[in-house]
Design a protein around this nucleic acid. Sequence first.
RNA 1: GGCGGCAUAGCCAAGUGGUAAGGCAGCGGUCUGCAAAACCGUUAUACCCCGGUUCAAAUCCGGGUGCCGCCUCCA
Length: 468
Amino acid sequence: MQIYNTLTRRKETFTPAEPGKVRMYVCGPTVYDAAHMGHARSAVVFDVVYRHLMSKGFQVTYVRNFTDVDDKIIRRARDLGRDYSEIAGRYIREFHEDMDALGVLRPTHEPRATEHIGDIIELIKVLVDKGNAYVAGGDVYFRVRAFPDYGKLSGRNLEDMEAGARVEVDEKKQDPFDFALWKASKPDEPKWDSPWGPGRPGWHIECSAMGRAHLGETFDIHGGGKDLIFPHHENEIAQSEAAFGRPFARFWIHNGFVNIDQEKMSKSLGNFRTVREVLAGHHPEAIRMFLLSKHYRSPVDFSADAMSEASGALERVYSCLLRIRESVDVEVPAGRDAGDFQDRFIQAMDDDFNTAGALGVVFEAVRHANRLLDQDPAAHAAELASIHALIRRAGGELGMFTLPPADFFHAAKKAAGLDPEEIERLIQKRNAARKAKDFATADAIRDQLKEQGVILEDAPGKTTWKPA
RNA sequence: GGCGGCAUAGCCAAGUGGUAAGGCAGCGGUCUGCAAAACCGUUAUACCCCGGUUCAAAUCCGGGUGCCGCCUCCA
């Protein structure tokens, strides 16, 4: 399979360092506020990476950290008059709730920075001993100039960046690009004892330390949002490679941003969408459909229209699933495979996790199944069962199409806040009118229901309904 | 100023050398009492513009235009 590697800026054939086993590290959230759609995208994208690698038979060790001590958490805690650990704990809990709701599998390990202070201190010691870091006051800084490869991930060099001159001046630093490994704590800030006095870790060092603790010194895959390429991942490389003298991550994967109505989602614009808000109005799988309908490296634009389109697409698949289950016995082992849909689905996924292309294959399968259903379901029972199996298997990798179709539609009805009994009563009344050829009354009832947001679908012998 | 990315039909979106997936919407049809759903057909002589390489380019190379991101906390 091919994976686009940020480090080389091209697709490369992926093979893990140790055959059969994949070590993957993804940067998780700093837990100081509710998770937003950007967090959801990153989590869902790497969830799919994780699922697909497992489907290839790899034994995947997936680590995603929580940054649970940092300036923003401390500030938030102070604003609310709480302890920083209480804030972090609360948002970790919420993050889990949100991601569970989205069907994101829990990683193998979810280390928190504060659980690895010892590892972090050990790592900083190594860097100081090697001359890659220096102590200044109670702080410790990484000496960027001592690491010749600095900039290799983001394609920058120090001289070019200096021209930009948007670097904060700090008299403690020997060089403006040096970054903190350890920060001396101010009064009332969380602190841990260290050889350099009481303090807390800088942001970048935790990933190097936790990654090593759980995955060793070289990972197969390291991922995160595009915005982390510089400086975060660049700094991780510098720390880890300077300390261990070996390549840090072999493949770097970065997901694109979520925009809101064509604007960058940002606090200052006030256009943040939290996962909770979106979940309140949309089915979780519709959110995944929206996110996975585009390639993971491209920006996606979140909007009401985009979400309803995704919902419609999801419904199309579930409708098909429902039709198949009502027509044939899908539990019968598939007698024949579903044409080349299966192969093409895997091919798309193997090509740098092309979920948009893979979904295209699913929709082709859906149309094919609908066609068979329109013709003669019984005659195509085996093929329909195999398409049903294909869609479910594809869904297993994408984290969609996982519910019994009837449950999916039932949930939609419930979410629409309609009264099923009243609707059923009207449907019966209408069908009685239809039988009596009183179409004026029948149509009036249908129009009335439509106004309430109910769409009727007449099938031979029975009428079903769904929310608009 | 430096680095990187993107530009495909009305909209969303795959496709990275061999002649344009898929979704939504539209139009024509089948089905239906009429609709809805589903299916069939149709909808880009063509992939921002200009050059070049090639038997062959949306796909590679050069130049241009437009948009976006990173360089400060950020998924």
